[in-house]
Design a protein around this nucleic acid. Sequence first.
DNA 1: GAGCGCATGTAATATGTTACATGATTCA
DNA 2: TGAATCATGTAACATATTACATGCGCTC
Lengths: 182, 182
Amino acid sequence: MSLPHALLGLLAVEPASGYALTKAFETDLGRYAWHAGHTSIYPELGRLAEQGLVEVTAEGPRGSRTYAVTPAGRAELRSWLLDEPAEHSRRVRNEHVLRMFLLSALDPADARVALGRIAENTAAGAAELRRVRAAHADKPLIGREGFGQLAAEYGLRQYEAARDWAIWAMTQIDDNTESVGR
Amino acid sequence: MSLPHALLGLLAVEPASGYALTKAFETDLGRYAWHAGHTSIYPELGRLAEQGLVEVTAEGPRGSRTYAVTPAGRAELRSWLLDEPAEHSRRVRNEHVLRMFLLSALDPADARVALGRIAENTAAGAAELRRVRAAHADKPLIGREGFGQLAAEYGLRQYEAARDWAIWAMTQIDDNTESVGR
DNA sequence: GAGCGCATGTAATATGTTACATGATTCA
DNA sequence: TGAATCATGTAACATATTACATGCGCTC
């Protein structure tokens, strides 16, 4: 369960309301790393506050509450990021990768079509992240301003690798079916 | 919810019991693409059978049931793999990527340590997949024998890209803190 | 015949998702 | 003043995890 750490991380960069955090999960963070809706976020903030990892530092209009990390919360975040990932973190759930695994269940012609689509989609994703990177090119990499920049570069490289792979896989299938056909 | 498709994909390659499917999720598939335990798998097989997407083709010792995909199941799998991914499939949950996002919440020295660890781990992962690839080098890429080979190559490339990124990110942080320090 | 692994299941709990609901504030 | 967005919440449902439970079959 990484939602509490995601919240601590966001709040460590800048205090925010549950609503603002919800918005953050709708952009890059939720798209590439971790998704959550407001119905998960609000109760989790309550639990973090109970544990003393965050606290309400301000109350604004419309009943909004601004949360900030406490020193204990910052320590928890730090040790989570610096400790070795636990065994259970290996329990991945990634629909895109699953599709790549299951490609072997298709016949070669269908697999080729699916790979072509993957190549298109990953190329489009890479292009989008190149725009994100360009828009933040002048900001520092660490801290408030740079939040997510390292991750954007990471995503870009992953997309590029995925696209290269898809093209490679298509040629592999072509070579394979050709030699079988002979 | 991709579990039904994961099961259809595995059964499309080869009929199997729930127990055997559970084992499959404990190896590469569960490690890189999608994880599930037997308490999810058995009920899901029941639902798929109700829907006519799989059927029991044999019953063996100890009450074991061998499931196989029906033509309807194969059609469902095919269209899932060939259709555009749905909007909700973007709802990723990947703890590793989350860590990379949250790196910006650390101070530069800590971020460097975390990146060094990521570089180590991804290098180890790449090495492991190179062994997997070598062990299957002589098998075809599509169908029963090749199951997961394309995915293994994909994983290898992702690991390599992640490692390159981590090393790049460390140099970026070094350059950055150096220039600030001046 | 003892122990291990096969093979399936139930039940309790935790977590996540969807739909529904409410009211405040801002801005045009 | 009407619409959009802010801001939080509840409830029902679906899904996933953990712990518990049972019995068969194979091998030594």
